[in-house]
Design a binder for these strands. Structure first.
Length: 479
RNA sequence: GGCCCGUUGGAGAAGCGGCUUAACUCACCAGCCUUUCACGCUGGCAUUCACGGGUUCGAAUCCCGUACGGGUCACCA
């Protein structure tokens, strides 16, 4: 059997991390099995559609490296791929069901249904199912929706790729609407019809869809079709265990946001692939090719996948480290320019800046924070570092080094390195007691980037200023 | 409330009946390397898998119950 899978977003906005995960896993599944990856647009909620929604979805998918084999304007063997262009198809199928007595027209208004549900709620009913009061009514000249007549006492079992045996009882499902009053089908109806007509073999989707599965199975049953194999992937939750909510602004959830911050697409691909899937390996960094190779639907996790921003930062940092200096400069430059950093400086300076921070960079825009923290922070020495600064001989060392800097005419990283050495020779300081006081004197901290490079970047004036400040701080505190 | 699902260290996450005195990654700590830092390397970091019972020669792994967390019950997708 041909493997055909689909990613079926509604064009309601930007690409969400959860949808990206669904798209990615379907893509991996298809590529792994030499199948076809289809993108279908589910735009049946006309009120929520966004004009540029389709374009935006495809664009961000492409950025991630996820490209459809079949979609709008591309290998249209099973089109159209936009549900609003398939209205006739759904209409015909709904008619067919009504003829068979498996569906019926419902003339209830929204208000009536609301009242009906409210009454049931007050009566303490668990199941707020539609009363079926329109079932068997003669045709009327009023607007109507079409409902599926859910069979009694049927069970809908299926073997879920992720969850194993799952079954639902039809008694828990009320007669649901398959075609809305506006003539547009509902999600579950359109989805089932399309999955059949597009010959979808496997449906990998989020677990929030699992209760939709029996409804879709009913449609397959009603037409005598064979349903696809379903797999429901775990939800992506935040660190508090809650499903990622698009309204939660404490977590960046749209691919576009990461793209704008200078995250790398391969790193995002890597990170997202680990959301509910774990390759059989003792590492976490994988190229897209490796992920395709290693993807195994049997290794999809059953417990919720936690969105761990720290891990994303780690993965992206690992990818940035493998970049060439030129590529990293290219990544950072727009953010630096936007922040007005490096104006009047030459390309060498910008390259030095990036070189100094490259290894600690988690995303492109972070260069701005690192820069600010390094240059614009009021100079202070952290408590741990004071212990070293106050040791005897340190003042002499700093004075000696300051003098050398003042006297030197050429000041590049290599010169600074030599000057440190000279200061050591002049004062008898060496090893940690040579480098550490100087490091602290110019950065205020014991940890940081390469010392000579850092000095070069800081520039002679700031350097001398900080060295002098350090002496002052030392004198006023060492008692 | 009904129906589904989940619960492993500071964090992520493997393991799905004996090979586990619970992998790996991140974070943290220590040592080595480097005249500093970072990188890299080595070692440390859960006697224990939400809790209670059961099945078994043997359970993190199977069963039942409890607690907690989550999903879903629309003319949204």
């Amino acid at each position: 059997m041909d493997i055909r899978v689909r990613y079926a977003p509604s064009p309601t906005g930007h690409l969400h991390i959860g949808n990206a995960r669904t798209a990615l896993f379907n893509y991996l599944f298809a590529k792994r099995k030499d199948g076809t990856f289809i993108v279908r647009i589910e735009d049946t909620d006309t009120e929520r559609n966004v004009e540029t929604g389709i374009e935006s979805q495809l664009d961000h998918l492409a950025w991630l490296g996820i490209t459809p084999d079949e979609t709008i304007g591309q290998n249209e063997t099973h089109g159209p791929y936009r549900q609003l262009e398939r209205l006739d198809i759904y209409r015909q199928h709904a008619e067919a069901l009504m003829e068979k007595g498996l569906a019926y027209k419902c003339y209830c208004t929204k208000a009536e249904l609301e009242a009906e549900r409210e009454a049931m709620r007050e009566a303490g009913e668990d199941k707020l199912h539609y009363s079926r009061k329109c079932l068997g009514l003669p045709d009327q000249d009023k607007p109507y929706a079409i409902r599926f007549k859910v069979p009694n006492e049927s069970t809908y079992p299926f073997e879920d790729i992720v969850k194993g045996d799952v079954r639902f009882s039809s008694d828990d499902i009320g007669d649901w609407v398959i075609v809305k009053q506006n003539g547009i089908p509902t999600y579950n109806f359109a989805c089932a019809i399309d999955d059949h007509l597009m010959e979808i073999s496997h449906v990998l989707r989020g677990e929030d869809h699992i209760t939709n599965t029996p409804k879709q199975l009913m449609v397959f049953d009603a037409f005598g079709w064979t349903p696809p194999t379903y797999g429901h992937m775990t939800l992506i939750v935040n660190t508090h265990g809650k499903k990622l909510s698009k309204r939660d602004e404490s977590i960046l959830q749209f691919i576009e946001q990461y793209r704008a911050l200078g995250y790398l697409p391969e790193a995002m691909f890597n990170f997202i692939a680990l959301l509910g899937f774990s390759p059989d390996a003792e590492r976490e960094i994988f190229t897209p090719e490796e992920l395709v190779e290693r993807f195994d639907e049997r290794r999809l996790s059953t417990s919720p996948a936690t969105f761990d921003a720290g891990k994303l930062a780690f993965i992206n940092n690992r990818y940035i480290k493998t970049l060439s200096l030129e590529a990293t400069v290219a990544l950072c430059r727009p953010f630096l320019e936007e922040a007005g950093i490096g104006q009047g400086q030459d390309d060498d300076w910008m390259e030095s800046l990036v070189a100094v921070f490259k290894d600690r960079l988690s995303y492109g825009k972070q260069i701005v924070n690192l820069y600010d923290d390094f240059f614009n922070r009021p100079f202070a020495i952290e408590p741990d570092a004071m212990e070293i600064i106050t040791q005897t001989g340190v003042d002499e060392l700093i004075r000696a080094f300051t003098r050398l800097v003042e006297q030197s005419t050429t000041l590049d990283a290599d010169t600074y390195k030599a000057l440190i050495k000279d200061a050591g020779n002049a004062t008898g300081m060496k090893g940690k007691m040579l480098f550490m006081p100087i490091r602290i004197a110019i950065s205020g901290t014991m940890h940081g980037p390469d010392l000579p490079k850092m000095m070069h970047l800081l520039g002679r004036d700031v350097l001398i200023e900080r060295l002098e400040q350090t002496l002052t701080i030392r004198e006023t505190s060492d008692k």
